[in-house]
Simulated assay, not measured.
Amino acid sequence: MCKTPTYCDLGKAAEDVFNKGYGFGMVKTDLKTKSCSAVEFSTSDHAYTDRGKASGNLEPECKFCIYGLTFTQKRNTDNTLGTETSLENKLAEGLKLSLDTILVPNTGKKSGELKASYKWDCFSVGSNVDIDFSGPSIYSWAVLVFEGWLAGYQMSFDTAKSKLSQNNFALGYEAADLQLHTHVNDGTEFGGSIYQKLDCRTSLSAKVNNASLIGLGCTQTLRPRVKLTLYQL
């Protein structure tokens, strides 16, 4: 069964041009490893040379595939603790339920979020609800697929203010070696991207938006597990 991507996954192949592996005045490292007990550890840190500021995080993840359960803990240098518990493909094929909680020990601030998503071969839908008794925010999205074309909608509604705080549309096309993506956010932000896979080792990506930001990227696999990525803005 072919699973439809989520709204956040639309155009993801070219997102890294702006969001990952690129940036002036910044040094970043990422590390992933897996213990003999099948617990996966992910860690990353950023150091900004112009501001002298550094930050990092650690995420241990434990999966119980037979039950469809995944437990993830998130800790960072800002002393923020997060926990995610998810259940996937057990109640129904393609259905995922999650509970995210965040605790800041220094201030005692707590927050949580309930998430639900469902994926099938021609559509995907999802919704997140903040655990906030003063007025939760509801975030929802939907994506439809037809012969390689994708259309998506994303919205966020603030129940405390009874106001639509996010209203986004996206349109794209995906093939085996090509991805096109355009989006309109709140009627004011426009952008588009293209991702082209030249062969099994080389890919090109480009992205542009109405803020006159243009990004170009090239990724070359040197060895089976070694990649060289170049970015230009």
Rank of each mutant, 00 (worst) to 15 (best):
S165I: 14
L228R: 03
T229V: 09
F190D: 03
Y173G: 02
T229H: 10
K161Q: 14
L222C: 12
S117V: 10
L198F: 15
V184A: 04
K207L: 08
M155H: 02
L228I: 07
P136Y: 01
S212N: 13
D132G: 07
G135V: 10
L164K: 12
L95Q: 11
T188P: 01
L97V: 12
K207D: 00
Y195P: 03
L103I: 12
D130G: 09
K227L: 09
L228E: 09
T221Y: 04
N106S: 15
D186I: 03
T107W: 12
G148D: 07
V208E: 01
K110V: 13
N209M: 05
K96T: 12
S111Y: 05
S165Y: 05
P136I: 07
S193D: 00
N168H: 13
W149L: 14
T182L: 07
E88P: 03
H183N: 05
S111T: 07
E84D: 13
T202F: 03
L97F: 02
E189Q: 11
L97H: 09
T229Q: 15
Y139H: 14
N168V: 01
A211G: 07
F133E: 14
L99P: 00
V145H: 04
F169D: 00
L87V: 12
Y173T: 04
W120Q: 15
L171W: 02
N168Y: 04
N168A: 11
M155P: 00
S111I: 08
L222D: 00
N106T: 12
S127V: 15
G215A: 05
K161M: 12
L198G: 01
Q154V: 03
A206K: 01
G108R: 14
S165Q: 03
A142K: 04
P136K: 06
G112M: 06
E113Q: 15
H181K: 00
K207P: 01
D121T: 14
Y153K: 11
D199W: 05
G126P: 11
Y195V: 03
F133Q: 12
D132P: 03
